[in-house]
Design a protein around this nucleic acid. Structure first.
Lengths: 230, 230
DNA sequence: AATGCAATTAATGTATACAAAATCTCCGAT
DNA sequence: ATCGGAGATTTTGTATACATTAATTGCATT
């Protein structure tokens, strides 16, 4: 796409993913424009794009804010991601090339090396490599539409920093999933691949719930799966 | 949202859904702007929004065109829709209110009355009622994110005019699905509901495939209208 | 002090002017 | 006649000015 719009998009997106804006904080077009060094027009386009991806929301007063991931929504969204990414992975298993499988394998190597015996573990790097892993899988599915649908859902887990909360055993399990997925790809077994990916995401969801409960242990609010009363 | 942008969005979206632009045709911002009666700015925003929903695509040369639904893609997308809408329907079964179930029931009545013994069947009206039915179900799922993800996929089937190709027996089956879905909602049985919805979409896919094969064998070129908005 | 309301300020929405890029045209070389 | 390419033209990208709407301030009233 165009230069200024991309610049604005990248800048805002990175800032959001790194948590540089407090949730609920108002993102003013003028401030963003001057900070990034472009005019308001490309900033506006970038905000709309990010809104479409779900990273940014517009309140009724037309103000843009970083999306707030509330407990109940997060649960729905993890399920949704498991479903969609499972489907995409099944497609990928049929279509992926050997070269791409090798790339995945190399990424799995790097991730294991990154965490092997290191203390503290470099979670930022791990999270980055993990994103790359998932990106390649999505790409292999060969559906542009599916990719755009997934984009926002994957980014959600980055914002929530789920990877940063993995215990050593959870990390090991995650690495195991990567290896098993590569095996399923090598066999071009779509149901196997789908199943592994679904496990991978649902395990991440469980980790998120656990880590979140611990953090909120002082808070008397239990995780609720609620139905609505309207 | 804002007045001019909404006006542009509605105008372009309706024109696309009614097939007033030939597929692959270039949508020029200036023409659209003068036709609709606003400036280019809101037209641009509308185009980006429609692009995010999948109705419009930008080619590498930055030109906007109506999305072309090619055979293989359509197949993926029907599967995707079956998956997503099935999931949404399962959520809806847990959360839907009695009032909404009554609305669905009323819609099912209207659809059956619309087609009962009439010749020719008013497919436009049917398709519209059917869209409303699905919209209510999606709303009942209570996930705004899920709704926006689905929007484009549902609109795809409108563009493809799948409903217009239903045979009498296929129509009857479709009505049966609606009734069964309402029963599943009354029982708040999410798996039943999901299953019915999945059947409903996959049946639509099969109809599309069948109708498409027939059409291609008889008439190699689909009828294309070229009109303009307003 | 708290409240309501008008005036002010600030933010977003829209139009328009200009810049950059893509497309088209037309002419000359082969 | 075909091809290539230098301008001309059209179209999109960006900046900016102006319009509209939301938020804030500060004063008057109670």
């Amino acid at each position: 796409m165009s230069r200024a719009t991309d610049k604005a998009y990248d800048a805002i997106r990175n800032a959001v993913l790194q948590g540089n804006f407090g949730v609920g904080l108002r993102l003013k077009e003028n401030d963003l424009a001057t900070t990034i060094g472009v005019s308001r027009t490309p900033v506006r386009e970038a905000l709309r794009r990010l809104n479409a991806e779900g990273l940014i929301e517009f309140k009724s007063n037309h103000r843009a804010t970083v999306t707030q991931w509330t407990g109940e929504n997060v649960d729905d969204l993890f399920q949704l991601r498991a479903l969609l990414e499972g489907f995409a992975t099944a497609l990928a298993a049929e279509r992926i090339s050997d070269a791409k499988i090798n790339e995945l394998s190399a990424l799995a190597d790097k991730m294991e090396q990154t965490s092997a015996g290191k203390r503290p573990v470099n979670f930022d790097r791990l999270s980055q490599l993990n994103s790359e892993f998932h990106r390649i899988v999505m790409e292999a599915a060969g559906s542009k539409r599916l990719q755009t649908l997934m984009a926002g859902l994957i980014e959600m887990t980055i914002i929530l920093r789920t990877y940063h909360r993995y215990s050593p055993s959870e990390l090991a399990r995650s690495f195991g999933h990567h290896r098993e997925l590569i095996a399923a790809f090598l066999a071009h077994d779509s149901e196997w691949a789908r199943s592994v990916m679904t496990s991978h995401i649902l395990a991440a969801r469980a980790s998120y719930v656990r880590a979140n409960n611990n953090r909120n242990s002082a808070d008397p609010k239990p995780p609720q799966r609620k139905t609505r009363t309207r």
